[in-house]
Write a protein that binds this DNA or RNA. Structure first.
Length: 262
DNA sequence: CGGCTTTGACCCGCGC
DNA sequence: GCGCGGGTCAAAGCCG
C-alpha cells in the first residue's frame, strides 16, 4: 500500500469505529472506573460487549470498484495496490479480533469486581466479617430517654428497652465497608437524608450522618467518613437493615429535591 | 412550597 | 462531679 492510501484507510476505519460505538449506544464500552451508579451502569449484560471494527467496505465492493475503468496498461499496478489493501484489511480484522477478545476479558473482570462490590454494599456483611476493617465499629450508645420510636433502644451494655427481638436483631446489624470515592456521595441504591455532621477526633475529615429517607419506617442509618490515612477511601458504616425494597433506578429522576443520592 | 443540607446546641455515656 | 467525645436535634437557609 502506498503512503497516500494509508491515511485514507485509517480515516475510514476511525469513522466506522465511531459509528459502531454510537450505534451500540448503551452497549458501548463502559468499563471505566467511577462510572457512577453501578446499578444504572448499562454494562451489566455480558452480551452487550461489542466492538465491531469492520472497516466499512466489503471485499466484493472493492473488487467491483477496482475492476471498473481499468485500462489494460495499469491493470497490474492497480492489482498490486488491491493486494496491499486486502493485506491491510486482513491485518485490521486480525487486530479487531484481538481487541475484542481483550475487551471481553476486561469487561468480564470488571463485571466480577462490580458484583463483589454490590454484594458488599447491599448484603450487609455479618459482624465477624468486619475484622478486615480495623478498628471495629464502636458499640452503639443510646440515650436513656430513647423510647419506642428509637428502634432497638439499647445501651452500650446491651440492655434493651421496649424493643422487640426483631427490632433488636435489625439494629444490631452493623456493617462497615471501605470504598474508594472522590466525593462523600457514595451511591448504594438507597435514598439517604443527611441529619448531621461532626468533626471527629483524630480525623481531619468530618463524619456525616445519614438516615434512610424512608425513616421512620426504615430504621437504617449510615455514617460516612473519609479515612484519615487515605483520603481517597470512604469508610461507610451501616446500622440496621432496610425493611423495604430498594427504590427503582427510574425513581431517581422523579425524586423531587433529592440532592443527595448516596 | 416541600424537602433537603448546614451547623450550632444539646444530650448522654464514659473515664478520670 | 466534671470534662470529653460521639450522636442527634432542630432552626435557618437553600434549591428545584
Amino acid at each position: 500500500m502506498d503512503e497516500k492510501q494509508r491515511p485514507e484507510l485509517r480515516r475510514r476505519l476511525a469513522e466506522d469505529m465511531a459509528i459502531d460505538v454510537a450505534d451500540n449506544g448503551e452497549s458501548g464500552v463502559c468499563c471505566g472506573a467511577g462510572g457512577g451508579d453501578l446499578r444504572q451502569n448499562p454494562c451489566t449484560d455480558e452480551s452487550s460487549i461489542s466492538l465491531d471494527l469492520s472497516i466499512g467496505f466489503s471485499e466484493r465492493s472493492l473488487q467491483v470498484t477496482t475492476k471498473k475503468n481499468l485500462h489494460a496498461s495499469d491493470y497490474t499496478v492497480k492489482n498490486q495496490k488491491k493486494g496491499k489493501i486486502e493485506e491491510e484489511m486482513k491485518r485490521v480484522v486480525e487486530e479487531n479480533r484481538r481487541l475484542t477478545a481483550m475487551l471481553s476479558s476486561i469487561c468480564s473482570r470488571h463485571h466480577a469486581l462490580r458484583a463483589q462490590l454490590i454484594d458488599l454494599m447491599t448484603n450487609s456483611p455479618a459482624p465477624e466479617s468486619q475484622a478486615s476493617f480495623p478498628p471495629a465499629a464502636a458499640p452503639i450508645r443510646r440515650r436513656k430517654s430513647e423510647g419506642v420510636n428509637r428502634i432497638g433502644a439499647a445501651d452500650y451494655r446491651g440492655n434493651y428497652k421496649e424493643a422487640s427481638s426483631e427490632e433488636r436483631a435489625r439494629s444490631a446489624r452493623v456493617s462497615k465497608i471501605c470504598v474508594r470515592a472522590d466525593s462523600m456521595v457514595m451511591r448504594d441504591g438507597y435514598h439517604w437524608r443527611k441529619y448531621g455532621q461532626k468533626v471527629i477526633r483524630d480525623n481531619p475529615y468530618p463524619r456525616a450522618y445519614f438516615r434512610c429517607s424512608f425513616a421512620p419506617v426504615c430504621p437504617v442509618k449510615k455514617k460516612v467518613q473519609r479515612s484519615s490515612e487515605d483520603e481517597s477511601v470512604l469508610v461507610v458504616t451501616y446500622e440496621g437493615e432496610h425493611n423495604h425494597v430498594q427504590p427503582a433506578p427510574a425513581d431517581h429522576h422523579h425524586a423531587h429535591g433529592l440532592r443527595s443520592y448516596c
